[in-house]
Design a protein around this nucleic acid. Structure first.
Lengths: 260, 260
DNA sequence: CTTGGTCTCGTACACCGTACAAGGGGTCCT
DNA sequence: AGGACCCCTTGTACGGTGTACGAGACCAAG
């Protein structure tokens, strides 16, 4: 069997999943009885990776930190994965596996299917803020990601949009959720590291902005609009905005269906 | 005048812009006549940063690379910026300055204003793929970013959406563009580093996916749908999808306006 | 007992962000 | 003229990073 180092000498891959052999062969390690103490295992590594990324953020994550968490040397991990990037790609696909997929039969309303997938995707991005960057940088074609992607395509087929518009509609909805969840997740994470509540953090940023003279007047009505929202928290506002945007998108799809 | 090191001892900031003094004071260096050879300058540093990030990608960028580009030691740069993150935040705001803002008077149709801002924003994200990650990780409240943000808010006011829905509508449109541009930019960048055309790369990925047995049948109609698009390139498809999504969003806004 | 495969580890390299202290050139005051 | 001070650049150093390489330890098969 080829070792990690051997395989790395081939032409540059662009995704773990594009190397069909790697994922499956390495799983044989799971059934082993022995070797030295460490009960290492690809799945355990991935799980620990996800846990560390969730709790300490992508910036703090390193192979040495991960290895320490597993009571192992950094290089031990490299027997199971070729590179850090590969590991991240595996972790990315793993969290997509936690996303529950709704019933996609045409009997249930596509609107509900869409809302469910969208909220689930958003929750995923908020719970795992490190995911956003990886979705951008990797191809994201692992089995779980693909299952999600296919579910999304199925829902779009149920909308009644013409075939040539399904991909566009899919983009409109899920790139929106991606953008929204990304910004939201990072914002929450920043508040946490700054040790502030979301409202405190928000208020501070608003204050600094309105101190800059060139934005004083143009920002006046914006902040009035904020105050006019009453005693709502930042979370409340965000929730309402997300809901409104989602209904807007549903309405948009309906309009495009009617237009066809 | 406080040095970079001195100021860094204060409480942790979360954005360059939240430290009102830093941005402005340091500009005094611009008017200097002399010192040792290097004609360094905050603006020159930012410009070189943007150039490097564009040409070699965020992964290859480092303070030492940047310094070499400027014929200077790495530590020289630190006289003008406190940290690498601050520099990135400055670069981020700088590229937002290159985004032309349309005429926002209520006389021109808000639909055109929206389309123009959206396409501009998309182009920005594609031209500078490194921007996406920074928008996520930073607050993004520099002057140019704010100008863009205010313009967007102005357009949303022109739509006729009820005040409580303007933020949601804004999210729907611009988080979509953010998501779309991010994925698009990274995809193009990956093709470039892999030395393939977008079509080649796309075809390879599709091939690998359809090799995995669990997706064989569910992917069959998807790939049929792809082939049915005729001789269009990946770029063509993307262009059409973006256009369709944008019209869908416009239609969605109209529907929500009518509903109010 | 030997051989070979599976796994872990220690060491080492090149690179990263940046703290710190030393020093040179220019300007201004005495 | 001499000195003080400030602006800026530099060299060195520390603790981190991803990971290549080679040396083993353990186990199963011949």
């Amino acid at each position: 069997m080829v070792s990690a180092a051997d395989r790395a000498k081939g032409p540059a891959r662009t995704s773990v999943w594009l190397d069909v052999k790697s994922g499956r062969d390495r799983d044989r390690g799971r059934g082993r009885k022995s070797g030295q103490p460490a009960g290492l295992d690809r799945d355990k590594i991935i799980e620990a990776t996800v846990r560390l990324l969730d709790s300490e953020g992508a910036a703090k994550f390193s192979m040495r930190r991960l290895a320490a968490e597993l009571n192992v040397t950094a290089m031990s991990v490299y027997w199971y994965v070729d590179t850090k990037d590969d590991l991240l790609e595996l972790a990315l696909d793993a969290v997509f596996g936690t996303l529950p997929l709704p019933d996609l039969s045409t009997e249930t309303d596509w609107r509900d299917q869409l809302r469910e997938l969208a909220t689930g995707y958003r929750a995923l991005l908020v719970r795992h803020p490190w995911v956003s960057a990886l979705i951008g940088t990797f191809l994201n074609i692992g089995p779980h990601s693909m299952a999600f992607s296919l579910a999304v395509q199925q829902v779009m087929r149920n909308t009644g949009l013409p075939p040539h518009g399904q991909m566009g509609g899919l983009s409109a909805v899920f790139q929106f959720v991606y953008g929204f969840g990304t910004i939201e997740g990072h914002f929450i994470q920043r508040c946490a590291t700054a040790g502030m509540s979301q409202d405190e953090y928000f208020r501070q940023a608003m204050g600094t902005i309105s101190e800059q003279p060139e934005f004083r007047e143009s920002f006046a009505n914006a902040s009035e609009l904020m105050e006019a929202r009453g005693g709502d928290t930042v979370e409340d506002m965000r929730e309402r905005d997300f809901g409104f945007a989602l209904e807007l998108l549903v309405a948009g799809i309906e309009a495009m269906v009617a237009r066809a």
